[in-house]
Design a protein around this nucleic acid. Structure first.
Length: 320
DNA sequence: TAACCGTGGCG
DNA sequence: TCGCCAAGGTT
């Protein structure tokens, strides 16, 4: 396996004179981490899942909810969810339908289903305690590379690179000098971010939180606030004159007129309903019958909806 | 790898 | 107005 030494190693360790090619545990933490943490100490948002006494379950719930969903919309949903289901066991004992209802309009309702499956798995495999092991976390439904590392890091203080879209963008700019990150997280992104982390685990966790916060508040996708950035002195993107993205811009995902919109409309009706919803009621939400039935079939296949005779209910809802 | 999977707010 | 974006995961 060929290991490519990224150019930021030139200054990542604070010294490049010995030409070292691997991270020395005793090496002082990176310029980026130190500056980011200093900034984070003064500028971090007061988000409830960052409070010191918050448990792993609450952090896991926040991470799932925050997938592709802005913080402001997650805040009330997170409070309501944990108030109702303070433990994995509590959620595991309830129906998918209630989880889907509680999810409200956060979007991507399959996450509600997976979060409940996650709770079931935690009860069955881990005695109701969110596992600490990275591989055990990765094995949970709805938990991928980012979420597993985020929980292991922020809930348990382990030292892992935590790479979300904010961190990818921040590292792509500050370290690689690129105007934006690639569309998906790659192993190389984990390697590049890991190289920036302080050696001490709890401080590494703080660095990860700081990188994420910088990406969310300063090193934003559209209009980066470089004037307020704590690492602007060492930012490779700024040093090269903030070049604009060159390659083909990936087209944004479509929504209007797609099956996803129809699924959303159908599920909104079922969420509000107290009993089984006749097909005639669902017919009202979308004119195209073929697309309507395709969307409904998708909801059923995903386990969000069940057919009860000539009507529909959220999965697990009692027909009567 | 790329398409699929919601929803709402903002520039 | 409407394209773009928001703490991804799954297939």
């Amino acid at each position: 396996m060929i290991v490519v030494i990224p150019p930021f190693r030139r200054w990542a360790g604070g010294s490049d004179r010995d030409g070292r090619d691997r991270i020395d545990p005793a090496m002082p933490e990176t310029t980026l981490a130190a500056a980011a943490i200093r900034w984070y100490d003064e500028n971090a948002r007061d988000l409830p899942w960052r409070e010191p006494d918050v448990g792993a379950w609450a952090i896991l719930v926040s991470e799932i909810m925050l997938q592709q969903t802005p913080v402001v919309r997650v805040l009330p949903a997170w409070r309501a969810w944990l108030s109702r289901w303070p433990t994995p066991a509590a959620l595991a004992a309830d129906t998918p339908a209630e989880a889907i209802r509680m999810w409200g309009r956060l979007g991507y309702p399959r996450r509600a289903l997976r979060l409940r499956e996650c709770a079931v798995a935690i009860v069955e495999r881990h005695s109701g305690v969110v596992p600490t092991d990275l591989d055990a976390l990765l094995a949970l439904p709805g938990v991928g590379t980012y979420t597993a590392r985020a929980v292991a890091t922020f809930a348990y203080g382990q030292r892992h690179p935590v790479v979300d879209t904010n961190v990818r963008r921040f590292v792509a700019r500050a370290v690689a000098g690129e105007p934006d990150a690639g569309p998906a997280t790659r192993p190389a992104d984990l390697v590049a971010t890991e190289a920036l982390l302080p050696a001490e685990p709890v401080r590494a966790a703080r660095a990860s939180a700081a990188f994420m916060e910088l990406g969310a508040l300063i090193c934003t996708a559209r209009t980066p606030r470089c004037a307020d950035c704590p690492v602007t002195e060492v930012c490779a993107w700024r040093a090269s004159g903030r070049p604009a993205p060159t390659g083909p811009t990936r087209r944004p995902q479509q929504y209007a007129g797609t099956d996803r919109q129809v699924r959303g409309l159908l599920l909104a009706v079922l969420r509000e309903a107290t009993g089984p919803v006749p097909h005639e009621r669902l017919d009202l939400v979308w004119a195209d019958a073929a697309q309507r039935s395709r969307a409904l079939a998708g909801l059923v296949a995903d386990g969000l909806v069940e057919l009860v005779g000539d009507a529909c209910v959220l999965a697990g809802d009692r027909p009567g």
